[in-house]
Simulated assay, not measured.
Amino acid sequence: MQDVDAARSGGDQSGDDRFRVMVVDDSAVIRGLLTRSLEADNSIKVVASVGNGEAALKALDRQTVDVIILDIEMPVMDGLTALPKLLAAQPGVHVVMASALTRKNAEVSLRALQAGAADYVTKPSSRSELTSADTFQRELTAKVKALAGANRKAPAPRSEAAAPAVEAAAAPGAGGNLYGGRQVVLRKGPMVCPRIIAIGSSTGGPQALLELLGNMAASVKVPILITQHMPATFTTLLAEHIGRATGVPTQEGVDGEVVQPGRIYLAPGDYHMVVERDGTVDRIKLNQNPPENFCRPAVDPMLRSMASLYGSGLLTIILTGMGSDGQKGSEKVVEAGGSVIAQDEATSVVWGMPGAVATSGLCSEVLPLKEIGPQVRKLIMRSAA
């Protein structure tokens, strides 16, 4: 019964502008639960539901889809094998990997992200948990809508003139992009050489982090703190991947650890990571305070704590991600004299988090991903000269 429900809709329907989703999972029960969860939102339509990667490829011959929910472990053709074939069969489609939260599956999911998957979701460990998992259903629906909507954005009206402290963006890669009907605006004035760097990311973040840090971390000797929206196990593996890719000592933050230059610290899953001053040293502190922006770890608490300690010495970088986590924290960074750089829309998987700060007058630069690392290196070298 792996593809008996493959062609649910019978093809594209004129006038139906709902986001089109294909669910790929070897369990018919799980496919049904995922379908009901997604279609509870009136803007989503599951147009195909199949049991393995081979059936998914056949379904793409009959269906145009916006997002594919792709299981990892399946017979005939597993998710990792199917991923590049699906991306080639329909360029522009977004793939969300779905798997149970195990170290093995987390490792495969990270490999899938590097191979072109846009995001991942961790499935509850049992059918009863899946049926009652409101958080999982909300996360899945939000990711599908953000990814599908990224390809369907309608032109938005230009915003009113920027406030006196900012100017209309003319930076490379900014290009008049719009977010929530507002235009990119940049702050005036020079950026200060950072004593510490804070990075926030979400959807598309693991890929972006590996590219950014590969271009920057080895030559930038200040501490780098990262909050990436990820569960435990995933953050452990991501820290390992970053360390191997950069050659820079990288680990999940440990409660009470002294912040040291030349090291990268990643917020562990399910913990907010902040910095507190203890006499003459700064220490990482972890807490399980309530989620912010539906996230734990969240970017905002990290930025609030660092802004109060480092002022103008703090550089914040907001990378690809859905939602607006990091915007309020970036306001505190700017108020304290620090600087903010955002990834541009063209190179973001979802221009939510960077779009929120880029259109709020908080950024000194809005840049393509490949230009952020060189810009930071240039800033440090210029200050050292």
Score class of each variant (00 low, 15 high):
5 D>S: 10
7 A>M: 09
8 R>N: 03
9 S>P: 03
20 R>W: 04
23 V>F: 04
24 V>T: 04
40 A>S: 13
43 S>V: 02
49 S>D: 01
56 A>R: 11
70 L>I: 14
81 T>N: 12
81 T>C: 11
85 K>M: 13
88 A>M: 09
93 V>I: 14
101 L>P: 08
117 A>Q: 05
119 D>T: 05
133 A>Y: 13
151 N>E: 14
165 A>E: 14
169 A>I: 04
174 A>R: 00
178 L>K: 15
211 E>A: 09
216 M>Q: 11
223 P>Y: 12
227 T>N: 08
228 Q>E: 07
232 A>H: 10
233 T>W: 06
242 I>S: 08
245 A>E: 00
246 T>I: 01
250 T>A: 02
250 T>S: 05
254 V>G: 00
260 Q>T: 04
261 P>Q: 03
272 H>M: 09
274 V>P: 01
284 I>R: 08
289 N>F: 02
294 F>H: 10
294 F>D: 07
296 R>F: 03
302 M>W: 07
303 L>N: 06
304 R>P: 00
304 R>A: 07
315 L>E: 02
322 M>K: 13
328 K>E: 15
330 S>F: 12
335 E>P: 08
343 Q>T: 07
345 E>Q: 14
349 V>L: 05
353 M>N: 08
375 Q>A: 15
384 A>L: 13
385 A>D: 09
